[in-house]
Write a protein that binds this DNA or RNA. Structure first.
Lengths: 198, 198
DNA sequence: CGAGTCGTTGAACGGAATCAATCGTCGTGG
DNA sequence: CCACGACGATTGATTCCGTTCAACGACTCG
């Protein structure tokens, strides 16, 4: 879902493509920040180590998503990037991106627009998580995914991934869909979902 | 917690300051987007209405926070802004902000930096929500709030607000703190928290 | 054909929300 | 100055529902 920035970067030429085995570090805290990244395959997690040796997972980046964008404006990385599973990441040179942003107002507008959209999406996801009832949370999510002026619900990911995005166990998600269907709120046809007309 | 962009805007001159009673609309879906905003007092919620008349809450902006940043790069607002309680918001002219960003590479760098930091924070908050156990979630949050090279935990907000930020009932949050203290992991002195040294 | 993944359903458990009650503090206005 | 109300902090008891574990069918892909 945070493909936005990733897609912008896809139009540029990556400086490098790194292959990582599970557990490999892509970068470490305090390393000089030279690149920002897009996950091409696998899964990368960002972890911060505190001075007492505790670790906190800050984020997990999935396929197609960008990460470490904040490194564009920071000398050093502020966390560690570790491959959760074997992965492949595209590396984009900060220097090139920055010069492109500086020399081209249009580019920087596009980039800022992607960033603000990203913020919007994250806020919305967070707001969804404030809904405690699984059924209600799923329902609201479905409303958000409905194509404008139609009753078709746009589900790009496998259900199991959507469940994770919603912060639900996949079983709970299936059951919620089931219930919504039984209540006549939605209709399922093979892999597609629709809202029932009243 | 999303004060970042708000603070950037605070350095500019707002075009206007609007006072809203509970339930008042600040703007509506499809209105021409002329301003972006900072909440000076109260609480603003962003709501989208679907074609079938359903409503989905996209975000809630609290005191000090900015919202509708994406409107900078959009002709129209894509949701409604409604005062949750009586509120006061500062309005910043898109035109002025955009021209400032276009004429000054330094300004636009600062702005982009704030946006990427905002994204980072939101991702982290979201990642915390993936931790199911209240105790563990609180513990990880406290680690994140610890001042570098000290064991003091930086809590700016009242506990009850932190509880909400963590997506926990405040009672649950208090109990989690209690448990961490009993387990000898943290120490509480009046309003301050510390990690116990080993 | 078998491994892996997604989708689905059942049963049981645990823990977080909820309701309720109390205390302390702070600010406000009479 | 004190009474009052609002709000934050705290603890107890109960309920509910989402997670977890388990098992199975369908499908895809190598």
């Amino acid at each position: 879902m945070s493909l936005l920035v990733g897609q912008f970067l896809s139009n540029l030429n990556p400086s490098e493509c790194k292959v990582l085995n599970k557990g490999d570090f892509l970068f470490k805290q305090e390393d000089t920040a030279l690149y920002i990244y897009v996950v091409e395959a696998g899964r990368i997690c960002l972890v911060r180590y505190t001075t007492e040796g505790n670790s906190v997972r800050l984020h997990t980046s999935f396929c197609g998503e960008s990460f470490a964008e904040a490194a564009l404006f920071s000398q050093r990385y502020h966390c560690n990037a570790i491959a959760d599973i074997s992965s492949r990441v595209l590396c984009y040179s900060k220097k090139e991106i920055l010069s492109s942003l500086h020399n081209n107002t249009n580019e920087s507008d596009i980039f800022m627009s992607l960033l603000t959209n990203q913020i919007q999406m994250l806020r919305t996801r967070l707001e969804l998580r404030n809904i405690l009832s699984a059924n209600e949370r799923v329902l609201q999510y479905l409303h958000l995914q409905t194509k404008p002026k139609s009753s078709e619900i746009n589900l790009t990911l496998p259900l199991i991934n959507i469940a994770h995005e919603l912060g639900l166990a996949h079983e709970t998600f299936y059951r919620a869909l089931n219930k919504l269907e039984k209540e006549g709120i939605i209709i399922r046809q093979d892999k597609k979902l629709y809202f029932a007309e009243k």
